[in-house]
């Protein structure tokens, strides 16, 4: 089964082609690391996959929206609502069977149960990031779209995210993550797509050599780390 396929995708911003003939597929229970320097097109492809933008040309196939989750550059939670209200709200949107008990379970998981009724605006940065992770994993998605998920996370949140991604992969979920943190990404990835100025410079399996020397990927296939 191929839950994700990107076929000949082009994206223009005005006359500028931000993506040029991008092709890749991703199987179930696998993780694709989307790499490339700033402006390479990583966020653009993720936004197209998340339905936030449309491809100018080409076709994108994804699982049902109810089974996908998206984490962008920002946390995507409401500051005026409490942690529990935030998760309950997104639980309803994603048709979680029992939004209240799921929300409570996830608040326990991300160690926020003691502040479940406090508004998110009163949380520290780390707490807000953990709440965002609970929102992403709340409906046990089959497809995770994570745009630079490690950026500005504290150590605790990075460890939590790595655990959650491993668990998701074990239960058969597919993950696409864009990142500059090569070591963290390559540890988890089964496939690597390296973008360079909107074009695929490398698309293939992750190898042990990449884990041992992540910068070699950029040296061998173009782009900059």
């Amino acid at each position: 089964m191929v839950p994700v396929s990107v076929e000949n995708v082009w994206k223009y911003f005005g006359d500028y082609p931000a993506l040029r003939e991008v092709n890749f597929t991703l199987e179930s229970a696998s993780c694709l690391a989307l790499l490339g320097r700033n402006g390479a097109g990583k966020t653009t492809i993720l936004r197209i996959l998340a339905g936030l933008s449309t491809a100018s040309k080409g076709e994108v196939k994804l699982p049902d929206r109810r089974r996908t989750a998206y984490l962008g550059h920002n946390i995507g939670i409401y500051d005026e609502l409490s942690a529990l209200e935030n998760l309950k709200l997104f639980g309803r949107f994603y048709e979680v069977e029992n939004p209240v008990s799921s929300a409570s379970k996830w608040l326990e998981r991300v160690s926020l149960a003691h502040v479940a009724d406090a508004p998110a605006r009163e949380f520290s940065r780390g707490m807000r990031q953990r709440l965002a992770l609970a929102r992403v994993f709340l409906h046990e998605p089959e497809m995770l779209l994570l745009d630079e998920p490690f950026t500005s996370l504290d150590d605790r949140a990075i460890a939590l995210l790595q655990d959650l991604m491993r668990e998701a992969k074990q239960r058969g979920a597919s993950i696409i993550l864009s990142t500059h943190q090569l070591r963290e990404a390559l540890e988890l990835a089964t496939k690597v797509v390296l973008l360079n100025r909107g074009q695929i410079a490398y698309c293939g399996p992750r190898t042990q050599a990449m884990v041992d020397d992540p910068a070699a990927l950029y040296r061998d296939h173009g782009g900059e780390a």
Partner: peptide, 11 residues
């Protein structure tokens, strides 16, 4: 917090 993106990406 880019909540609009999260809503658009949701079902």
């Amino acid at each position: 917090n880019d909540c609009l993106d999260v809503l658009i990406a949701s079902p």
